[in-house]
């Protein structure tokens, strides 16, 4: 027993020492902060990084820095000691905050041949470059429940205890839902709307992943998610029952951006990486592994993504009024 304990302790010390060895950041290294599902081994990030490294003779460190908000907070806390060159995964809701927290480089992105359905083609993005997006809707299983087509239908009695939505204070999809209601109906009517659908909500989870997990496990029958979520089930689960509700009302959408920090160590590499995300073959990888729409035109065609319903989208608001949304939301939770 003593020998075993000694062996384990030795191995532990060796492992800890091994993990503490860090080579200093060189100019041939590029540090990319991104969110978990992008940076995870099955996400789009590692594949893209591999391709970029092969082409550019640079070592890329892909850092899983949590969700978009956590990434920003990390950068804010690290201040000028931040190792990040590039941030991948900022969404349109926090771009204003990103600008307040730190400085970003202007990116001379090539003329982007935006996809026809990408809603923000007209905006000239200088500091932040969009690389994927998706409209939001309700995902359901065919045969289990008739899909809602309007916000009004969501309050119908046949949806009792069917919906799973997410706390807007914790979750971007959750905020998008609450914001959608406020913008579609106005702040006052939104409060009564939330009260009217209360009985139809099975639960409000802290994150999209928990709520969608409940939906996948058939605890909920409708989950607010990206329209592209259905494709995951078609492709990986080979389950065609999963469908995206075709809303007649305009729906919100989520855009993800990449940006280069002014304090970058490898600024040229960083800019190249951001532009690399807009290559057609990389856009395709992002689409197939991130399960989001590409921003470039011509990528979706002849894929399962082309079979998704075409949804009308609401107008983008960068930096919406959080207080208004949370006030309206409070009428639901009180």
């Amino acid at each position: 027993m003593k020998k075993l304990i000694a062996i384990v302790l030795t191995l532990f010390a060796v492992a800890l020492f091994y993990y503490s060895q860090k080579t200093p950041q060189s100019s041939h290294e590029l540090v990319v902060y991104s969110y978990s599902s992008f940076a995870s081994p099955w996400g789009a990030g590692p594949e893209i990084v591999k391709d970029f490294e092969a082409e550019n003779n640079v070592k890329v460190s892909l850092v899983d820095a949590g969700d978009a908000r956590t990434i920003l907070q990390r950068i804010e806390l690290e201040k000028h000691k931040s190792k990040a060159d590039v941030v991948v995964g900022l969404d349109h809701l926090i771009l204003n905050e990103a600008l307040k927290i730190t400085n970003w480089k202007n990116i001379k992105a090539p003329g982007i041949n935006y996809s026809k359905d990408f809603p923000e083609k007209k905006i000239a993005f200088d500091k932040f470059v969009p690389f994927d997006w998706a409209p939001m809707t309700f995902i359901y299983r065919e045969g289990e429940i008739p899909p809602p087509r309007t916000l009004e239908e969501l309050g119908a009695i046949n949806y009792q205890k069917s919906l799973v939505i997410y706390d807007p204070r914790m979750s971007t999809p959750g905020f998008l839902f609450a914001d959608w209601i406020v913008r579609a109906l106005g702040a006052d009517k939104a409060k009564s709307y939330f009260s009217s659908i209360k009985d139809n909500i099975l639960t409000i989870t802290p994150s999209w992943s928990t709520g969608y997990g409940l939906f996948q496990k058939k605890q909920a029958r409708l989950a607010f998610s990206y329209v592209t979520s259905a494709v995951y089930h078609w492709v990986h689960d080979k389950d065609l029952k999963y469908r995206a509700a075709e809303f007649r009302d305009p729906v919100p959408y989520h855009i993800e951006f990449a940006g280069v920090l002014s304090d970058c160590h490898n600024c040229s590499g960083a800019e190249e990486f951001v532009k690399f995300l807009l290559r057609p073959e990389i856009q395709r990888k992002i689409m197939m592994m991130n399960f989001m729409y590409p921003v470039l035109d011509g990528i979706k065609a002849d894929t399962a993504f082309a079979k998704l319903p075409k949804l009308k989208v609401i107008e983008l608001m960068i930096g919406p009024d959080k207080e208004v949304v949370f006030n309206a939301w409070n009428s639901l939770i009180q």
Binding site: R169, I201, T203, I333
Partner: peptide
């Protein structure tokens, strides 16, 4: 949050909100 139903709220989420959102 998950099991508290629509009216659920906790003190921890308030702290989280202050950090992450505000």
């Amino acid at each position: 949050l998950i099991l508290g139903g629509p009216s659920a709220s906790t003190f921890e989420i308030l702290i989280y909100q202050k950090i992450k959102i505000m």
